[in-house]
Design a protein around this nucleic acid. Structure first.
Length: 911
RNA sequence: GCCCGGGUGGCGAAAUCGGCAGACGCGACGGACUUAAAAUCCGUUACCCGCAAGGGUGUGUGGGUUCAAAUCCCACCCCGGGCACCA
């Protein structure tokens, strides 16, 4: 059929490519491996296959990486471009809870649908390398990595992970001791406890976010600001629980410092630094009375002379010990909440604070509340007695849960001091023009004894030295980053391969028994409860006894019943793609060395929502594997690129409920849904806004190539852009026009001449090659397309396409629109597939200009444009310009006072 | 409040080593073809004044640097995302 039958063309070529295995990539050691090619690893953040299927917003980045991969294949690279699925997770489990359908069944169905949809885009993935994190052959190695963490400790001197066996031998040899106790003097049980406390994977009793309604514990980052669950919006309570933790904090410095090694957006690196939150400062000990003292962390030890009171978090354990039965002399009325004794007052405040920590805390905004404990501490530098308050603006989870308050240099402390009538002493001299309250800027120290006159940095150092010499504290570094809570009480995750002995001993499941498969359970409902005091129970407690209990050498062990979080599987999938069927290792040394090369993944593309968590966790695991010698690069992802989102109009009815956007009709200025007016809003395309557009529908109407081109033509890859189905016709028309330029629609004849292009068309051809090549390198696919549009438009008036244009055009277009390019290539009788054709080159001499347009400015305004030879000299240019009538009209013949020449483009005359 | 992005025609956007603002596309308008419509092809399309030639204005706002600013500097406004009494 001579007209552009995109459906037939696209289906046929996708089938051919698959049959030919044209996107299959071989590894070092394979018979067809070509070691002369340079390697390029181009990776997408793999998707979670949800039940809703893909919408046109998902594949934006995938189209970009596909184009980049195809381009570099044509430039001779050996491109690894894989795709897989992050398939453990709560949605399938919750579906199982609701319907009883096994998560495996749901997941397999979704995987199939996602694979079908992704294949329909014509992506050049090597599907032979695909896997899902739920495959036992994959999670076998996820479990193996966990055991590597379990069997390792962090050597602070060497700043790296080492096998725990090396720690044991150093302890046995007396090269180290266990927290000051010699190994030989330590009883067996204590040795075990000590070792367990040193592991990178360890168990700790930590406060967790317990969500009874979900029957599970949530990570901090999964809890909303309102103290409710991110998923489901259920109430969340904080309670202590024994949990597996991963010691990511040991890597805090390296995770910051080694950001220097990667080519990432500066914004993402900044976000990671902020998340880790390294701050240097000091611990300072404030005596209270007897043996009691309050230890605080401060980033501003230089301001200690201005510490006029202290604040501890409501949850701080010292509060009970320091609060006296009666108010001491000098207690101001506004410090007491109007209550007769300190203990009652503090209890009342704590109760109010614990309630507030949920919803009200936000509402209450900035007003400072607190209560005096009735206790005084002594400022070790001034020797003054200063009151100790309880206030909820200090958090138990950061630093030591206590602060020295320096109202002169901290605005929150200033506000509190004003509210409670506490003294304010400036210890840094603000500039004269400063009119604010707390002053945090630079300046000389004042009111600070031996620090007076020093700048902040010097004063910090001197204070720390004083503290250390006098035993009142020491310089220290703290981090916002906390260890990674790694246990989930869910079913649909990787089982943690640990056995618990009768005396609390931890025994790893031997490597040869991996994978430890998920046991079958009959019912997936967690012990959900509306009782906030309900005990958390892992779902695997429902597994059969023969799974849960293991007898070894006459000892009965209980299996760990927690599973891993969804992050686990996505922490290392990029390594498995290198060697996905390896049964002896997570990746072979040769494959790892070849594909990771010097910088790791050469281009990693995904949404900015993963800027912190996923990328930080993956970097952490990678560094552990690096330390233990399993990988050869210090960083996993050499270059990161964040693609934008597809945005779309969404519509809300009068109750604020989203209505299906595709059923909304426009009537003049108003939008109607089922006859009722709705409000138009705008946001990220997705299920929650009910504004998804299904790619299947677009393929049906316009074809795959059109959709690929449209998504790329909308704008630069890294910005978000609004979906507009109306605009798709632009790229569709481009393809139809291209078709008609090459194919006679009546006869099906190829409209290509024997002749080469000449004159302007030849120049345009070579300029187009140059421009598209540069745009491809820069991931500027929108402008690459614009150049191809221009070349296409230039062909419309010609009866036949010149042979060199015909030879080049499908190759330039093929990364962007592979199907039509392959069809034209094939119809012209070209040898082989366009997929493996070489990228066109251009003749630099042809695109060199000999004439240029010279802009003539008079007093900064453009007054004339004159065609001049590119070799024009300044005196010639001035002579020509001053003779121009348009210039004369503005110079009135006056002599130039000044001439700036950027020849041949600019001549700027000042008169 | 803090941090990170971003504000350019009716719309999506080009142009960022400081050197022609608006490439390319959508839409709109006019024309050709057609019995007609669709499709296709040709043209116009930042705004204001002007018949025209031409002139003026213009890249969120106000200043500044410069022969020259979308681009650099200062202050502010708005939109999006992230974090939040983090000491």
């Amino acid at each position: 059929m001579p007209t552009y039958d995109f459906r037939e063309i696209e289906n046929r070529w996708q089938a051919n490519w698959e049959a030919d295995g044209i996107y299959r990539v071989s590894n070092p050691g394979d018979p067809d491996f070509d070691e002369t090619k340079r390697k390029l690893y181009i990776l997408d953040m793999f998707p979670y296959p949800s039940g809703a299927g893909l919408h046109v917003g998902h594949p934006l980045g995938y189209i970009g990486t596909d184009i980049f991969s195809r381009y570099h294949r044509m430039r001779g690279a050996n491109v690894l471009h894989p795709m897989g699925f992050d398939a453990f997770g709560l949605p399938a489990e919750q579906y199982a809870v609701d319907t009883g359908v096994h998560p495996r069944v749901t997941t397999e169905k979704n995987l199939e649908n996602y694979t079908r949809q992704l294949k329909a885009f014509g992506f050049s993935y090597d599907w032979n390398r695909s896997f899902a994190t739920t495959d036992p052959e994959y999670y076998r190695w996820t479990q193996w990595i966990f055991l590597q963490l379990f069997e390792s400790w962090f050597d602070k001197e060497q700043q790296k992970a080492r096998p725990i066996a090396e720690l044991v031998s150093e302890l046995e040899d007396g090269l180290r001791d266990a927290d000051g106790v010699a190994w030989m003097n330590l009883p067996e049980d204590d040795r075990r406890t000590y070792l367990d406390s040193q592991r990178l994977a360890y168990i700790d009793e930590v406060p967790v976010n317990w969500c009874p309604a979900l029957g599970t514990v949530l990570a901090n980052e999964e809890v909303t600001a309102e103290g409710r669950s991110d998923r489901g919006d259920h109430p969340v309570y904080r309670r202590p629980l024994r949990q597996w933790m991963l010691r990511i904090t040991a890597y805090a410095d390296r995770l910051i410092d080694e950001l220097e090694l990667v080519d990432w957006p500066e914004s993402v690196r900044t976000m990671q630094r902020n998340w880790i939150g390294r701050s240097e400062g000091a611990h300072i000990v404030f005596p209270i009375k007897g043996n009691l003292h309050l230890r605080v962390f401060t980033t501003r030890p230089d301001t200690v002379f201005g510490a006029t009171y202290m604040v501890v978090a409501p949850e701080h354990p010292i509060v009970d010990e320091i609060t006296p039965p009666t108010w001491p002399d000098g207690t101001k009325p506004k410090w007491t909440l109007g209550i007769d004794d300190p203990r009652t007052a503090v209890e009342a405040y704590r109760l109010a604070a614990s309630r507030k920590s949920e919803l009200d805390r936000q509402v209450e905004d900035r007003e400072k509340t607190g209560v005096f404990t009735g206790a005084y501490a002594t400022n070790p530098l001034t020797g003054e007695r200063i009151p100790v308050f309880v206030a909820d603006y200090v958090l138990m989870g950061y630093g030591t849960g206590a602060i020295m308050a320096v109202p002169g240099q901290d605005q929150r402390d200033w506000e509190f001091a004003e509210a409670f009538d506490l003294p304010i002493v400036r210890t840094v001299q603000p500039p004269k023009e400063f009119s604010g309250e707390a002053y945090t800027g630079a300046g000389p120290a004042i009111n600070s004894g031996f620090l007076d006159g020093l700048d902040i940095e010097t004063a910090k150092e001197k204070t720390i030295r004083w503290l250390e010499i006098n035993g009142h504290g020491e310089g220290t570094v703290t981090y916002k980053l906390r260890d990674w809570l790694f246990s989930r009480q869910r079913y649909w995750g990787e089982p943690i391969p640990i056995l618990h002995g009768p005396n609390g001993e931890l025994r790893p499941v031997p490597d040869e028994e991996l994978p430890l498969r998920l046991p079958e359970v009959e019912d997936f409902r967690p012990h959900a409860s509306s009782d906030e005091n309900a005990e958390p129970t892992p779902l695997l407690a429902k597994a059969p006894d023969e799974w849960k209990f293991v007898e070894i050498d006459g000892v009965t062990y209980t299996r760990e019943l927690n599973t891993m979080p969804q992050w686990a599987g996505s922490c290392w999938y990029y390594l498995r793609f290198l060697d996905p069927r390896n049964e002896d290792a997570l990746v072979s040394k040769e494959a790892e060395k070849y594909w990771m090369g010097d910088v790791g993944v050469d281009l990693y593309v995904g949404g900015v929502e993963h800027a912190v968590l996923h990328l930080l966790y993956a970097r952490f695991w990678h560094k552990v594997l690096y330390d233990l010698g399993h990988v050869s690069t210090p960083e996993p992802f050499g270059r990161l690129f964040n693609q934008g989102y597809i945005l779309a109009d969404a519509f809300q009815d009068e109750r604020g409920i989203y209505v299906p956007a595709d059923e909304v009709v426009r009537d003049g200025d108003v939008y109607l849904y089922q006859g009722k007016p709705v409000t138009r809003v705008y946001g990220k395309m997705g299920k929650s806004l009910k504004n998804s557009v299904n790619p299947d529908d677009i393929f049906e109407e316009y074809g795959v190539d059109t959709l690929r081109l449209y998504e790329m033509f909308m704008g630069p890859l890294d910005t978000s852009r609004p979906w507009s189905t109306r605009d798709i016709v632009g790229t569709h028309r481009f393809l139809q026009r291209l078709w008609r330029n090459f194919i006679d629609e009546d006869t099906g004849e190829i409209l290509v001449s024997e002749e080469h292009a000449t004159g302007d068309l030849q120049v345009l051809l070579h300029r187009t090659i140059a421009a598209v090549t540069k745009d491809m390198d820069d991931l500027h696919f929108n402008t690459a397309l614009a150049r191809l549009f221009e070349l296409n438009n230039a062909l419309v008036a010609l009866p036949l396409v010149p042979s060199d244009v015909a030879d080049v055009f499908p190759r330039l277009l093929s990364p962007l629109a592979p199907h039509i390019s392959e069809e034209l290539w094939s119809r012209m009788g070209k040898e082989g597939s366009v997929v493996v054709a070489s990228w066109p080159t251009y003749d630099a001499d042809l695109i060199a200009e000999d004439m240029a347009t010279m802009i003539v400015q008079v007093n900064g305004k453009v007054r004339d444009r004159i065609e001049v030879p590119v070799t024009i000299t300044e005196s010639e240019a001035v002579a020509i310009a001053l003779a121009s009538e348009r210039v004369l009209a503005h110079t009135n013949g006056a002599e130039p006072r000044k001439v700036i020449a950027r020849l041949p483009n600019i001549l700027s005359i000042v008169v």
